[in-house]
Write a protein that binds this DNA or RNA. Structure first.
Length: 643
RNA sequence: GCUGAUGUAGCUCAGUUGGUAGAGCACAUCCUUGGUAAGGAUGAGGUCGCCGGUUCAAUCCCGGCCAUUAGCUCCA
C-alpha cells in the first residue's frame, strides 16, 4: 500500500503495517516520540494496522492533535486510578481540552473528594503509568456494548451516551484494569505519560444541563517530560500575577465592596484617569468617522423593553422593575431602545442615513451570583455602544466600517493579534429567535460577505446569535486562559420593525431602515480588565494614570523638582513628586512598583546643569536629558500612543 | 442559580487537643540628607465576614446567611 506523507513523499509498505512501524522506518527517535498518527486527517492509533493507501502524518506531543491524543489517554489513566482508589465510581465523559483534560465522575455515596485527595490520585496515576499498559482497541456491536455498560458495569452515564451512538461503530479502549467506551485514538501505552498534575476539582452538570445531576469534574494535565510540567506550572503562576483582580487592587484602579453591591465596581482615581483617556480617544475617533454622541438616562419606562422583547426574554437577569405612580420603570439593561427613540424623534429621510449614534451607555444586568468576576463580569457596566441606522444597500459597507474601527482600536492597544473572530449565527433547531427567517438568512449572508471581503479569519458559531440577529463577535483570552467577548457587531432587521422605524426614500415612500448594533470594546469594565492583563499593569505612556515620578535626592533639590513638576503638568503630563525624607533607592523602588513609566531623578549634578536623570520603567537608567528633551520625548510618546 | 473551597490588621499571610490574637509590608512620629529596586528606632492599628447554637469559655466545634473564589449553567 502507498503511504503519502505531509511533504508529498510517497512510500510503499506492506498491508497492515502500523504507524509505529512506519515511524520506525523513518527514525527510531520519531517512533519513540510518536503518540499517534493522522490518517487521512483522522486521529488514529499508532499501533493500529493500516490496511490501505492513505495520507498520513506522524503525531508527537508537539502537534495539537498529538496533545489531544496524549491528554485523552491521560484522562483514561486518571479514570483507572480513580476506579482503583474509589471502587463503585461511575464515569461520564473525559475529554482532552486546550490545556490538559478532565473526567466527569459520579462518586459512590460515601466518598467525598477534596483537593487534598489529588496528590494521592496523582501518585496512583504515576504508578499505573509506569506499568506501561498498552491501550487496546476493541470493536463491539451495539447490543453487546449496551449489555456491558447497563447490566454489567451499571454505569447509567455510559449507557446514556451509548444510546446516542446507535447505528455507529462502537469501540472500547482497554488499558490495565480500565475499560472505556471511546472512539480513540490513544497512546500505544501508559508509559509515555511521565509527569502529572491534577489542577482542580469542581462541579459540572451532566451533559451541560443545569436540570440534571451535578457530577464531580477533575481537571488535570500531563507531560512527556517532568521539566515541561514545571514550566507549565511556572507559566500559570506568572499568569496569575497579571490577573486584573490582583493588579487592579495593587495599582488602585478599582474596588468592589459588598457594601455597595457585588458586581458593582467603583473606579478609583487611577482607574478613572485611564478610562477617561481611553474614552476621549475613542470619542474623537468616532466623531472623525461620522458618529454623533448622545446621552440617555439610566432608567427607562418598562414599555421600551416590552416593545423590544428584551423584558420577557431576559426577565430573570434584569434588576426588577420599580413602580412609581402606576408607571413601571427599569434600570436600562441595554441602550438600544433609547437610541431608537432618538431615531423616532423626527421624520428621517434617506439623506439622513446612515445615522450613527454612539453613547458610553451604562447598563445594569442582574448576572447570576456565581458568574460575577472582577471587572470581566459585572452587574453595572458601560458599553461603548452605537446604533447605526442605514438602508439595506448601505448595510455591508457600514458593517465593514465598523469592523475597521474595531481593528483600529485593538491595534492601538496592541491587542489585534490576540483577537479571535466569530460569526455568531442562529441555530435553526431553536425557536428563540425573532423576526422573519428570510431576513435572518440575508443578514447572515451579508455578514459573511463583509467578513470575507475584509479577509477576516473567523469561525462560525451556530446558536450564538442574539435573539434579534446574527453577530460578528471579537473574542480574547484573559491572563488565566478564560475567553471573553469584547467587541460585537450585530445586524438587526427585527427592532426597526418592532419600533416601527422608517425613513422617506428618494421615491417619496416610507422604507424600513436596518439597524447595526456595535460595541468595539464591548464594555469599558471588561476591556479595562483585559487591558490591565495585556500590559501586566505596565501601561503605555499615554494610558498610564501617573506618567512620570519626580524624585529629588535631597531636600536641597525640592524647589527645582517642584518647578519641573509644574512645568510638566503645564504641558498636560500626569506627574507625581516624592519629597519624602527617604533614600533615593527607596523612592526608585516604589516608583517601579507603581509601574510609573518614567522616573526623573534630581540630585546636585542635575540641578546645577538644569537636567534630569531619566529612568525608564523596566529598562533602568537611560541617562541625563535636558528638560526640553524630556518634554519632547513625552510629547512624542503621548501623540504616537506608543511604549 | 448549582457543586466545592475560602473569609484573621489597609495588603500578603501565621495562629490544633476551645482559655477573647501574631509577623512582614503599608501607615504615624523621631533619627538618618542620600546617586538608580526597599536605612534605623518607636508607635498606632483587630466586632478573627455576619447571625444563631453547643460550652464555664468559641477565631477554633455545629447550623444559617453574606461575600470572594474554581468550575458548571447563563450572557441582550
Amino acid at each position: 500500500m502507498k503511504i503519502t506523507f505531509p511533504d508529498g513523499n510517497v512510500r510503499e509498505y506492506p498491508v497492515n503495517t502500523t504507524g509505529y512501524e512506519i515511524a520506525q522506518s523513518i527514525s527510531e527517535g520519531l517512533a519513540r516520540n510518536a503518540v499517534g498518527i493522522l490518517l487521512n486527517d483522522d486521529k488514529y492509533d499508532l499501533m493500529r494496522p493500516i490496511s490501505e493507501d492513505a495520507n498520513m502524518k506522524i503525531l508527537t506531543f508537539d502537534d495539537e492533535e498529538g496533545k489531544d491524543i496524549y491528554w485523552h489517554s491521560s484522562a483514561h489513566l486518571m479514570a483507572e486510578a480513580l476506579q482503583q482508589l474509589y471502587p463503585g465510581i461511575k464515569f461520564g465523559i473525559g475529554p482532552a481540552i486546550e490545556n490538559g483534560f478532565y473526567y466527569d465522575v459520579d462518586l459512590p455515596e460515601n466518598v467525598k473528594l477534596t483537593a487534598e485527595d489529588l496528590p494521592k490520585i496523582e501518585a496512583k496515576m504515576m504508578e499505573l503509568a509506569k506499568a506501561a499498559s498498552p491501550y487496546i482497541r476493541e470493536v463491539v456491536d451495539w447490543e453487546e456494548a449496551m449489555h456491558h455498560w447497563r447490566d454489567e458495569v451499571k454505569d447509567e452515564y455510559k449507557a446514556e451516551l451509548l444510546e446516542g451512538f446507535k447505528g455507529q461503530e462502537i469501540s472500547f479502549y482497554k488499558h490495565g484494569t480500565f475499560t472505556d467506551l471511546c472512539r480513540g485514538a490513544h497512546l500505544p501505552n501508559t508509559s509515555l505519560i511521565k509527569a502529572v498534575k491534577l489542577l482542580s476539582i469542581a462541579g459540572a452538570y451532566w451533559r451541560g444541563d443545569s436540570s440534571r445531576k451535578m457530577m464531580t469534574r477533575i481537571y488535570g494535565i500531563t507531560f512527556p517530560k517532568k521539566k515541561m510540567l514545571d514550566e507549565y506550572l511556572l507559566m500559570r503562576e506568572e499568569a496569575e500575577k497579571r490577573d486584573h483582580r490582583k493588579l487592579g487592587k495593587d495599582l488602585d484602579i478599582y474596588m468592589i465592596t459588598p457594601i455597595i453591591g457585588g458586581g458593582l465596581p467603583v473606579w478609583l482615581p487611577n482607574g478613572t484617569t485611564m478610562r477617561r483617556i481611553i474614552e476621549d480617544f475613542m470619542r474623537k475617533e468616532q466623531v472623525k468617522r461620522g458618529y454623533q454622541e448622545v446621552i440617555t438616562p439610566h432608567v427607562g419606562n418598562i414599555n421600551l423593553y416590552k416593545t423590544s422583547g428584551h423584558y420577557p426574554y431576559y426577565a430573570d437577569s434584569q434588576f426588577p422593575p420599580m413602580t412609581i405612580e402606576d408607571e413601571e420603570y427599569m434600570m436600562k439593561p441595554m441602550n438600544c431602545p433609547h437610541h431608537h427613540q432618538i431615531y423616532l424623534n423626527k421624520p428621517r429621510s434617506y439623506r439622513d442615513l446612515p445615522l450613527r449614534l454612539f453613547e458610553l451607555g451604562t447598563v445594569y444586568r442582574y448576572e447570576q451570583s456565581g458568574e460575577l468576576s472582577g471587572l470581566t463580569r459585572v452587574r453595572g457596566f458601560t458599553q461603548d455602544d452605537a446604533h447605526i441606522y442605514c438602508t439595506v444597500e448601505q448595510l455591508k459597507d457600514e458593517v465593514k466600517g465598523v469592523v475597521d474601527i474595531i481593528y483600529y482600536f485593538f491595534k492601538t492597544f496592541g491587542m489585534a493579534d490576540s483577537i479571535q473572530t466569530r460569526l455568531s449565527f442562529r441555530d435553526d433547531s431553536s425557536d428563540k429567535y425573532g423576526g422573519d427567517i428570510e431576513l435572518w438568512l440575508k443578514a447572515q449572508r451579508e455578514i459573511t460577505e463583509a467578513a470575507d471581503e475584509l479577509g477576516l479569519n473567523y469561525v462560525i458559531a451556530p446558536g450564538e446569535a442574539a435573539f434579534y440577529g446574527p453577530k460578528i463577535d471579537f473574542i480574547i483570552k484573559d491572563a488565566i486562559g478564560r475567553k471573553w467577548q469584547l467587541g460585537t457587531v450585530q445586524v438587526d432587521y427585527v427592532m426597526p420593525e418592532r419600533f416601527n422605524l422608517e425613513y422617506t426614500g428618494a421615491d417619496n415612500t416610507e422604507h424600513r431602515p436596518v439597524c447595526i448594533h456595535r460595541a468595539p470594546l464591548g464594555s469599558m469594565e471588561r476591556f479595562m480588565a483585559i487591558l490591565i492583563e495585556h500590559y501586566a499593569g505596565n501601561f503605555p505612556f499615554w494610558i498610564a494614570p501617573v506618567q512620570v515620578s519626580v524624585l529629588p535626592i535631597g531636600s536641597v533639590q525640592h524647589e527645582y523638582a517642584e518647578q519641573l513638576k509644574t512645568k510638566l503638568e503645564a504641558q498636560g503630563f500626569r506627574v507625581m513628586i516624592d519629597t519624602r525624607n527617604e533614600k533615593i533607592n527607596r523612592k526608585i523602588a516604589e516608583s517601579e512598583q507603581k509601574k510609573i513609566p518614567f522616573a526623573l531623578i534630581i540630585g546636585q549634578k542635575e540641578m546645577e546643569a538644569g537636567t534630569v536623570s531619566v529612568r525608564e520603567h523596566t529598562k533602568g537608567d537611560i541617562g541625563a536629558k535636558t528638560q526640553d528633551e524630556i518634554i519632547a520625548l513625552f510629547t512624542d510618546l503621548n501623540e504616537n500612543r506608543t511604549v
